[in-house]
Design a protein around this nucleic acid. Sequence first.
DNA 1: TAGATTGTTAATCGATTAACAATC
DNA 2: TAGATTGTTAATCGATTAACAATC
Lengths: 211, 211
Amino acid sequence: MSEEKKISIAVIRRLPRYFRYLYDLIKLDIKRISSKELSERMGITASQIRQDLNCFGGFGQQGYGYNVESLYEEIGHILGTDKRFNCIIIGAGNMGNALANYENFKKRGFDLVGIFDVDPLKVGTKINQIPVYHMDELDAFATKQKVDIAMLTVPNKRINDVAKKVASLGIKGIWNFSPTDLRLEGDLVIENVHLSDSLMVLGYRLREKGF
Amino acid sequence: MSEEKKISIAVIRRLPRYFRYLYDLIKLDIKRISSKELSERMGITASQIRQDLNCFGGFGQQGYGYNVESLYEEIGHILGTDKRFNCIIIGAGNMGNALANYENFKKRGFDLVGIFDVDPLKVGTKINQIPVYHMDELDAFATKQKVDIAMLTVPNKRINDVAKKVASLGIKGIWNFSPTDLRLEGDLVIENVHLSDSLMVLGYRLREKGF
DNA sequence: TAGATTGTTAATCGATTAACAATC
DNA sequence: TAGATTGTTAATCGATTAACAATC
């Protein structure tokens, strides 16, 4: 009966940022850091850093601060960079291409195992050494090989059908690049990357400032 | 001495989402909608919708609800979809390519006017009919033509220099695709799209659920 | 007019910040 | 030991939700 306190999504979304800053500190050969110093670098409060980290454990030491290397490893462990996920990309257009060529994902534990599209010109080719299959082959593929995450870069009008298909195959994670908010049965985990939304907010903030 | 109440960023970030849902309603030929109905579609509370919209004005009518078409236009106006921004892409790699081919941006008021890279094989070509210039030409380009937004898809190690350059040219908006958090002098507006962060959060949430 | 639904104020909730005792 | 800085509790702040009078 684990009595875990639920960690808020706001905290979780800050973890990759801590992870990045700690990595930079390692490269700068900095061995230890206080919440105060880190707060100045990151532009957040020291209080928030200590609160956030204490959701997961007492990684620091009074009077000393945090050991950069081991804190980096702890956060990496929390984020699961030591675990591996099998990923597929559905939609071999420009965005799918960009994702397939993004080398960092593998480093973070995300292995691209297949790319799917309906275009006969693309099917049978490879992108960054990963084969492009026809969508019709997805069922068989997902049966043979465990797929954890589907990265969806299909045209907006196809997104709902594709997402439904993905869910039906038991794939639990969706990284959605279409502007549509997916609403699916079951306990899937969906992360949206709404690029247009981000750009429109940029536009709003620019005009708000009078530019 | 305008006594405007400051609108929180949380509200602003929800606007594009309202905008999308209203567009869908128009396509469904729905003429009016109450905050209650909309809340059910969007999976948020009716209270929040009414609070959000009232930051900008009383767009509804008691006993009736909101006129879909005119609310869509109001939010579009707030988001500035009727204004135009000149944009450049710096970094003609896979992600730059994907952005250059993203047709939706123009529809939302964002005009791509140039692409910049340092690769001599790319300079002189066109991507989606937009010329690729050498980075050395950026100064002259920005002098001749007003540039509002720079979309940065350069390798991480070059991001700080490129951002500094962009800022020095008086470009006020940065859409940053590198994992680095930019810290710049002056009153720039920066929107970050940290893809790896998003993917790592997806990984965390998957493991949290036991997948 | 009666019913519906907004606009808006008040209550609640959660997240951030401040403070400080614990302790290295 | 004295100084520094954490871990953690308490206070504050802001965002979300509830409630309801205003009004179409």
